[in-house]
Amino acid sequence: MARPRRSPEVQGIRTRKYNPRESLAGYLFISPWIAGLLIFTVISMGWSLVLSFQHFDLSTNIGTPAGFDNYRQIFADPKVGTSLRNTFFYALLAVPLDITVALLLALLLRGVRWGSGLFRTIYYLPKMSPSVATAAVFLLLLNGNEGAINKALGLLHIPGPQWLVDPAWVKPAIVLMSLWGVGGSMVILLAALQGVPPELYEAAAVDGAGRRAQFFRITLPLISPTLFFLVIVNTIGALQVFDQAFLLFYRDGNSNAPDAALFYGVYLYQQAFQQFNFGEAAAMAWVLFVIIMIITVIQITIGNKLVFYEGSSR
């Protein structure tokens, strides 16, 4: 049996010759980005790794070999453990909440026929507001005695907690502030929801599937790659949390915050720029790098078993 002929387009692609001038133009176009990556990321990372094995003297700009001293120091420091526990707790709380709220908002917005652009803008606006301004607002909102959140809870006869002082409520307070920027995840999920073919819902409705069944059997599987992407990206972001905690609790450069507010990124900053222990700070950064890598690999391994990719055999 004769093999089918390839289409002219496919033939064209396969037979197209390598053009060095075109390649050169391409490389030239991306060269600013490559230069930036090399200078500000790759070389900086290299220096950081070297620094993590040195005792660095800022007055002379000279580092002396330290072996694993910096790593030993951070593993012996109980505050590193405290800050890591706080960071994990925050990530476990913040990531699912962010994605859930974003999904709920995206589902609501998908159903909006009139003024959807306006609502999308409104929900995305908080993401655009500077962290400092957001923190200033949340300091007022979260005041345990006079804050608007507790006043609202009071209307429901719920005694509001001391969000910014009670160690048990400090991390939930930071999560609340993080949810202010949920618009970022929402926009991504909205795009994913709009990519789900409507005929699938029509077919399901004809087969008698209700809204609940449609959501769990059609919507969730088809947006699962996007959810998976958000889980990974948001986890990485949550493990690097810095600005929310710093602005709510350490903005004056002092330490009058409960231990519950000490996050890994904040402690790393304190080591580097309040105590000038650059070697230890670099070691802390690399430890976090390894932790993030391990968590990401685990997430990818598990995620690939759960995520539905259109066109795949699963």
């Binding site: 790759v42 990372m45 660095f56 990485i236 950064a285 890598m293 990401t296």
Partner: peptide, 24 residues
């Protein structure tokens, strides 16, 4: 996803304040 993970981790270390300390 692997690229995202690596990029974010790289960005983390690139943002590491200590990383830039010896550049001068």
């Amino acid at each position: 996803l692997a690229l995202v993970a690596v990029s974010c981790a790289v960005a983390l270390s690139a943002c590491n304040p200590a990383a830039n300390t010896q550049s001068g």
